[in-house]
């Protein structure tokens, strides 16, 4: 309960700072518009204002402050503007509309989930191989670890274009990017998890005369679950970033990444912010969903958290 109050306070503080930041960020645009409307503005010309400091402008033109939160194309939209845009593009628009954020979110989500599924299955398979084969462990594992320190997302534009040139387009290229971004965290986490049973437990299995298969299914796999879920959460966030970045290079028309790009081309800041918050909500829901599955699954397995 006390934590909730604290979290809400911090969030309220951030929103407050955001509203305050709108004043210096948007004051120049507001004054330009006021000048065009024939109002008295200090200093008079746009040229002088460009060189003046934002805080000085605010001090000299107190009447304009109330307008900074309702600019058409603000440099920094106010929180309620973003909220209104989110509401308009999700609830009020039809889902099939090209301007519905749900439609764009769905496009990105389907690529994310498909890639995440492929990456996770392959990652777990490789991890099982690594745990069981010393050769694979020694040859592949160092590379899997090194790959975590490399910005492999830089491959994304190339994958999109190369696949496009051989006729593959749409969902699959984005899914491939999402897949390889979630693949490596899952491999590393799963190997750690499958190795987590200690000597005592392995010895106990041996005294039971358990076969390799039994050790795997009854000891290694169950004890790897907390590690697996920790890396799944990293993996799905990485997959989402991959799917969004995968939408940039071809100038895709649909998806959250396309919304971001279109917004930055046409200076539609409110659209960028709403797409950004759409992506953030999506990521939060996905991670929370994984957390819920983890809680239920580990609860049924009898792990105390």
């Amino acid at each position: 309960m006390r934590s909730l109050v604290a979290v809400l306070t911090v969030v309220a503080g951030i929103v407050g700072i955001w509203y305050l930041a709108c004043v210096p960020m948007n004051i120049k645009g507001v004054l330009d518009a006021a000048e065009r409307a024939g109002e008295q503005v200090q200093p008079m010309t746009a040229k002088e204002r460009r060189d003046a400091s934002a805080f000085g402008l605010v001090a000299k033109n107190g009447f304009a402050i109330s307008r900074v939160w309702s600019v058409e194309r603000p440099r920094l939209p106010a929180p309620h503007q973003v909220a209104v845009e989110l509401w308009k593009t999700t609830v009020l628009k039809k889902v099939t509309s090209k301007r519905s954020l749900i439609y764009h979110g769905y496009v990105t989500l389907s690529a994310t989930l498909m890639g995440f599924g492929i990456g996770t299955v392959l990652g777990i398979a490789l991890a099982v191989g690594i745990v069981h084969s010393k050769v694979m462990d020694m040859s592949v594992m160092p590379w899997a670890i090194v790959s975590q320190t490399i910005p492999i997302i830089a491959l994304a534009p190339m994958i999109i274009v190369v696949l496009y040139s051989i006729g593959v387009q749409g969902l699959l290229p984005k899914a491939i990017i999402a897949a390889y971004l979630s693949f490596f965290p899952v491999v590393v986490g799963m190997v750690k998890g499958l190795r987590s049973p200690d000597h005592m437990q392995l010895d106990l299995m041996k005294t039971y005369n358990a076969s390799g298969n039994q050790v795997f299914w009854k000891l290694r796999l169950p004890s790897s679950m907390p590690y697996l879920f920790a890396s799944l959460k990293i993996g799905i966030a990485a997959s989402l970033v991959g799917a969004i970045v995968g939408e940039l290079p071809t100038g895709a028309v649909a998806g959250l990444g396309a919304r971001l790009l279109a917004g930055s081309y046409y200076g539609q800041t409110v659209q960028i912010w709403s797409a950004l918050f759409g992506a953030a909500i999506l990521a939060a829901v996905l991670v929370a969903l994984l957390g819920l599955i983890e809680r239920v699954l580990l609860g049924r397995m009898g792990v105390k958290s």
């Binding site: 966030a237 971001l260 950004l276 992506a279 990521a283 939060a284 991670v287």
Partner: peptide, 19 residues
Amino acid sequence: VGNFVAALPIVGTAPILVM
């Protein structure tokens, strides 16, 4: 809040910050 933000696709702020 920090844990929450750390999981978000922050690269998306790039177009805003470039602006």
